[in-house]
Computed example of a mutant assay.
Amino acid sequence: MNRLFDVPTLSGMIINNTTNHTGLPEDFRITLLVLYTFIFLSGTLNVLLMSCMLQSQRRLSFTKVSVINLIAVHSIFLLTVPFRIYYYAFNETWILGMYFCKIVSLMVHAHMYLAFIFYVFLLIVRYVEQCDQQHRLEFHRILHATIASAVVWLVIFGSMFPATMARYGIAQNDSTQCFNFGQALQKPAVKTLNYVICIVVIMGWSVLALFQVYFLLDVRKTFGKAMCQRQEFWAQLKNIVFLSIMFFCFVPYQGFRVYYVSEYGNTEKIIHINEIFLAITAFSCLDMIVFSGRDICKRINSSGWFCSL
């Protein structure tokens, strides 16, 4: 284990005999290659499964629209993953240009935060519906759902993407290496912005978790020992699945990033560890497989093929 993290400080910028074209120690390069390969394969399966499952749901609920947007987020991100896999697998210099490198690098961050936003929206909708079970939040026309989704995407990308692309990686001059854009963290304003984002994500998840505890206690108080036989209890378990995905995929990265931002520039190994945590955030691509695993199994058992709708 000591050898795994045996890398010099940034002042040296030379890694004994494990140096490669990607600028990563060999162990980290292989780890990232395995992680992103698994994410690409399983994430693609997740998107295909859920696309088929959604065809059978005629009701255009807020939850369904949120899931459709999540699938779109995952799909766009997965389109960029093969470029990461190629870069790590063949240990070659980056030949696709710095602009495209920035797009591929940004997509893992965009995927994380967009997925987090849609998770928050989805859980809030489910909480509202559970408070008033007589009324279900639905779009009455596909056009309304399309407009609402388009507004969210335009606001997010229109307000953040152009400015981010203009400033992201501006200090990176070596176009032969990719995914190495942390130099901006040496600026106090950028550090502060990162701290704020980390705190907002962690606090956002914490507030949702507190609401979930309240709803679970309410179900327990209402139905007592018979709650496991009630549909309300299983609805809470589905909410917990989403909260668990958010916790395991996003919260550890945000917690580590606070330390990463504060210590950036002191040692090079912290940059490599940050890349591992960042890759783990992409495991949220498996969300719908976890969330609808039981429904998928029922469909396979009943029809012999889940897409026979």
Rank of each mutant, 00 (worst) to 15 (best):
Ile240Gln: 14
Phe157Cys: 12
Val261Phe: 01
Gln172Val: 03
Ala89Thr: 08
Lys102Ser: 11
Tyr253Cys: 15
Met13Gln: 11
Ile103Lys: 06
Arg84His: 06
Trp94Gln: 10
Cys285Leu: 04
Ile197Asp: 10
Leu114Thr: 05
Tyr87Met: 09
Glu92Arg: 01
Met246Pro: 01
Ile280Val: 15
Met160Phe: 11
Ser244Ile: 03
Lys221Tyr: 02
Val120Lys: 10
Asn20Leu: 02
Cys178Ala: 15
Phe77Arg: 07
Met98Glu: 13
Phe215Leu: 11
Lys221Asn: 11
Cys198Leu: 02
Ile276Phe: 05
Val65Asp: 11
Ile85Arg: 09
Asn46Gln: 08
His74Arg: 06
Ala235Leu: 08
His135Gln: 09
Val108Tyr: 09
Asn180Arg: 12
Val261Leu: 01
Pro8Phe: 01
Phe90Leu: 13
Leu32Lys: 10
Tyr259Ile: 13
Ala110Pro: 03
Tyr127Gly: 10
Gly12Lys: 09
Tyr195Gln: 11
Leu96Ala: 10
Met160Asn: 15
Ser11Arg: 07
Arg257Gly: 08
Val151His: 01
Asn239Gly: 10
Arg230Val: 09
Asp174Val: 04
Ser105Gln: 02
Glu138Ser: 07
His109Ile: 02
Leu243Ile: 06
Glu129His: 05
Val213Ile: 15
Cys178Phe: 07
Ser303Tyr: 02
His74Gln: 15
His21Tyr: 04
Val258Asp: 03
Ile245Tyr: 00
Ile76Phe: 07
Phe277Asp: 05
Asn173Phe: 08
Asp6Met: 02
Asp6Cys: 05
Ile273Ala: 12
Arg136Ala: 05
Ala163Val: 08
Met98Trp: 00
Val207Ala: 12
Leu237Ser: 07
Phe291Glu: 10
Arg84Ile: 08
Ile14Ala: 14
Ile39Leu: 07
Gly97Pro: 10
Cys198Gly: 11
Glu138Gly: 04
Gln183Leu: 12
Ile117Asn: 02
Thr63His: 04
Met160Tyr: 13
Asn180Lys: 11
Asn239Pro: 06
Cys178Glu: 10
Asp132Gln: 09
Arg126Val: 03
Arg299Tyr: 00
Cys307Glu: 12
Lys191Val: 00
Phe242Arg: 00
Lys187Thr: 06
Tyr36Ser: 12
Phe211Tyr: 12
Glu129Ile: 01
Arg136Thr: 14
Leu208Cys: 09
Val120Gln: 14
Ser11Asn: 12
Ser66Met: 06
Ala89Ile: 02
Ile147Thr: 13
Ser75Thr: 14
Leu193His: 07
Ser292Glu: 14
Gln231Met: 09
Ser308Asp: 15
Tyr113Pro: 01
His111Met: 03
Asn301Cys: 04
Thr267Asn: 14
Thr222Leu: 14
Arg58Asn: 11
Tyr113Thr: 08
Phe242Leu: 12
Leu49Gln: 08
His135Trp: 02
Arg141Gln: 13
Ile170Ser: 14
Gly293Pro: 06
Phe248Gly: 15
Gly293Asp: 11
Asn266Phe: 00
